[in-house]
Computed example of a mutant assay.
Amino acid sequence: MTDVPALDPDAVLWSEPLDARRDAPLLVLLHGYGSHEHDLGGLIPHLPDAFAFAAVRAPLAPRWPTPGYAWYAIENLDAHDPDLVSSAASRFVEWVDAVAPGRTIGLLGFSQGAVVALQALRLRPERFAFVVNLAGYATPGELAGDEQLAVLRPPVFWGRGSRDEVIPAQLVVHTTHWLPAHSELSGRVYPELAHSVSEQELADVRTFLEKQLAALGQ
């Protein structure tokens, strides 16, 4: 796999000290390409406060002049090596294991962050309780954990805009077939929405998260 640096432990936005409410499930937020940990951190006030939250920063710098951070290179996205995504997801899982061993964890990612979240779930199907996939996709190719994932069928919410022209159409089609076979899928296509998150989508995400809290006994 392509080498990806470890996540910076100091580049994490926490909603509360790590040792606080150790019994609360942790929802980790993964931002998109060219963004940073404070971006999705702005969603925290709109999400159920029964969660503790951590917004992490991706470890790579995008190609100039794009600002912010990236999980993997997006040049020639139509034909990119899936190992790029797996390498980024492996680094993310390493961070999770280091900071929150044994803790119940859900993932919420936007765009590239959603791709990494789904890939992390595929690498470690037993480690994550659920995934919220906003404007992302499932990476083509088979992984060792896919067979177990198809048995476990963890809850996944997939939201995307009908006018999203960022994610290649063939990746959307692939995800449309892949997710129902490997998860308990719910979600929605939002009319007129481009590559972003709407108020309606955020309300649907909150409803999904509240259902996950109930399932976890919170």
Rank of each mutant, 00 (worst) to 15 (best):
residue 32 G to H: 11
residue 92 F to W: 05
residue 73 A to T: 07
residue 53 F to N: 05
residue 51 F to Q: 02
residue 43 L to R: 10
residue 87 S to E: 06
residue 130 F to M: 05
residue 32 G to D: 14
residue 46 H to I: 09
residue 133 N to I: 03
residue 134 L to K: 10
residue 53 F to L: 09
residue 68 G to I: 12
residue 89 A to M: 06
residue 101 P to L: 01
residue 158 W to T: 10
residue 78 D to H: 08
residue 55 A to V: 08
residue 59 P to Q: 13
residue 133 N to W: 04
residue 92 F to Q: 01
residue 44 I to K: 07
residue 74 I to C: 10
residue 95 W to E: 05
residue 106 G to C: 06
residue 33 Y to T: 13
residue 103 R to H: 04
residue 121 L to G: 01
residue 125 P to L: 05
residue 50 A to I: 03
residue 66 T to D: 12
residue 43 L to V: 14
residue 90 S to I: 03
residue 56 V to Q: 07
residue 45 P to F: 14
residue 138 A to P: 00
residue 108 L to C: 10
residue 86 S to D: 10
residue 56 V to P: 04
residue 52 A to V: 05
residue 69 Y to P: 00
residue 161 G to Q: 13
residue 138 A to S: 10
residue 127 R to I: 02
residue 68 G to K: 11
residue 150 A to K: 11
residue 68 G to L: 12
residue 110 F to Y: 15
residue 115 V to K: 00
residue 109 G to Q: 09
residue 53 F to P: 04
residue 93 V to K: 03
residue 131 V to C: 06
residue 102 G to M: 01
residue 37 E to H: 14
residue 44 I to F: 11
residue 110 F to E: 10
residue 149 L to I: 02
residue 62 P to A: 15
residue 66 T to G: 04
residue 95 W to V: 06
residue 142 E to N: 08
residue 153 R to F: 01
residue 103 R to C: 03
residue 69 Y to Q: 07
residue 163 R to G: 11
residue 74 I to P: 01
residue 104 T to P: 00
residue 98 A to L: 07
residue 162 S to E: 15
residue 127 R to W: 01
residue 47 L to K: 08
residue 162 S to C: 13
residue 101 P to E: 02
residue 87 S to Y: 05
residue 153 R to A: 01
residue 44 I to Y: 12
residue 41 G to K: 08
residue 90 S to C: 08
residue 85 V to C: 04
residue 86 S to V: 03
residue 124 R to G: 01
residue 63 R to A: 15
residue 118 L to K: 01
residue 58 A to T: 07
residue 153 R to G: 00
residue 37 E to M: 14
residue 132 V to G: 03
residue 39 D to F: 14
residue 154 P to Q: 08
residue 158 W to C: 07
residue 79 A to N: 10
residue 141 G to S: 03
residue 64 W to Y: 14
residue 156 V to R: 03
residue 129 A to T: 06
residue 164 D to K: 13
residue 76 N to A: 12
residue 78 D to V: 06
residue 47 L to I: 12
residue 132 V to A: 08
residue 74 I to N: 07
residue 111 S to W: 10
residue 159 G to K: 12
residue 48 P to S: 12
residue 99 V to N: 06
residue 97 D to P: 02
residue 141 G to P: 03
residue 86 S to H: 04
residue 91 R to W: 07
residue 104 T to V: 13
residue 49 D to I: 06
residue 70 A to S: 15
residue 120 A to Q: 00
residue 151 V to I: 11
residue 43 L to A: 13
residue 153 R to I: 01
residue 148 Q to C: 05
residue 148 Q to A: 14
residue 116 V to A: 04
residue 100 A to L: 02
residue 55 A to Y: 06
residue 111 S to G: 14
residue 83 D to L: 11
residue 157 F to M: 09
residue 45 P to Y: 14
residue 112 Q to I: 11
residue 155 P to R: 10
residue 95 W to T: 07
residue 117 A to W: 01
residue 123 L to F: 00
residue 94 E to I: 04
residue 84 L to G: 01
residue 51 F to P: 00
residue 56 V to F: 10
residue 101 P to G: 03
residue 49 D to M: 11
residue 55 A to C: 14
residue 51 F to V: 05
residue 146 D to C: 04
residue 110 F to T: 11
residue 105 I to T: 05
residue 66 T to K: 09
residue 81 D to C: 02
